[in-house]
């Protein structure tokens, strides 16, 4: 059964088209990622699905409830974590959690089991005001509050933005566990490396979905042969590759430049020759498997 169905939705804010003809389905207990930069339209999609705004065209449903007609029902079955930290800064950790439980007509005790693993990490600070928590702890509290009424679908808008690499990793481990309990998760992120942690992803840019698939299939669909190139100073190497007639694309990735050639025949020999003629030494060229970021950039250009 499709847990979430989105059918051709569009939304404009005055002249700006925020999203255009967006369609996708999400399966039960799936982690579905919307991957794209700021301004891609991720938040607009989530606000339509959470019944906070109306689409101009198209329709969408969650567990067969229509986002327009059945908005009250939808609000009961989803847990939503907006992009901005949206808890009450002046309430303590415990007060926030209590508040959200009460709003949904439940108690912390009743659903403690679901949030236990997450909430226990911040429980030592339950008397602290939410505003005084660190980034990672705020995020755990927000997730606990979104879960306290035992939703069937979790919608998380950029939960890991601005959070350090360690906390990000922990957060994704928590999502994995929630998925294993049967919760369907829609999550958005601007961090391309997080795509591989989703079951399926939609790569989204400027209001349009460029591709929807499993991370593996997206990577396997990369059309060109990709090489990681290293040769001394990366700044000079990049400049030289960009000026070269041979180059189809050249993007820095850490210590390497990821390179594709216009012509695949003899591409390595041609590249080696070009770099040698331009005075590069210690040249290292190896064929590599692309990652989601490589694919995203290839789709953009």
């Amino acid at each position: 059964m499709k847990t979430v169905t989105v059918n051709n939705i569009s939304k404009s804010y005055s002249e700006v088209k925020a999203i255009e003809n967006i369609s996708f389905d999400v399966n039960e207990a799936e982690i579905f990622g919307l991957i794209g930069p700021d301004g891609a339209g991720k938040t607009t999609i989530f606000r339509i699905l959470t019944t906070l705004i109306l689409a101009d065209h198209g329709n969408a449903s969650l567990l067969n409830y229509d986002v327009v007609k059945d908005y009250k029902k939808i609000r009961q079955i989803i847990g939503y974590m907006p992009g901005r930290f949206s808890l009450y800064q002046d309430l303590t950790v415990e007060e926030n959690l209590n508040f959200f439980a009460t709003v949904f007509g439940t108690t912390i005790k009743e659903n403690y089991d679901l949030i236990k693993d997450i909430y226990q990490q911040i429980e030592p600070f339950k008397k602290r005001r939410a505003g005084a928590l660190s980034g990672g702890m705020k995020q755990k509290l927000a997730l606990s509050c979104a879960l306290i009424h035992k939703p069937e679908i979790l919608i998380l808008d950029e939960p890991t933005t601005g959070v350090d690499a360690v906390s990000r990793k922990e957060f994704w481990e928590m999502l994995r566990q929630l998925k294993n309990r049967g919760i369907t998760i829609l999550v958005s992120t601007p961090y391309m490396d997080e795509a591989s942690l989703c079951d399926r992803v939609a790569l989204i840019q400027k209001g349009k979905i460029m591709q929807i698939d499993t991370p593996n299939k997206i990577v396997n669909n990369f059309e060109k042969t990709l090489y990681a190139v290293r040769a001394g100073n990366i700044y000079r190497l990049l400049q030289s590759l960009r000026e070269s007639e041979l180059t189809h694309s050249a993007y820095p990735f850490g210590q390497y430049v990821h390179y594709t050639a216009k012509e695949s025949l003899n591409d390595v020999a041609d590249l080696l020759d070009h770099l040698t003629r331009n005075g590069f030494q210690n040249i290292e060229i190896q064929e590599i498997k692309p990652n989601i970021e490589d694919c995203f950039m290839a789709l953009m250009s």
Binding site: G36, P37, D38, P252, M297, M300
Partner: peptide
């Protein structure tokens, strides 16, 4: 201080240029 948050990967690289 975290200058490149939220931009697409191509723009992020242009920024590093």
């Amino acid at each position: 201080d975290e200058p490149t948050g939220g931009v697409d990967p191509i723009t992020r690289r242009q920024f590093w240029d």
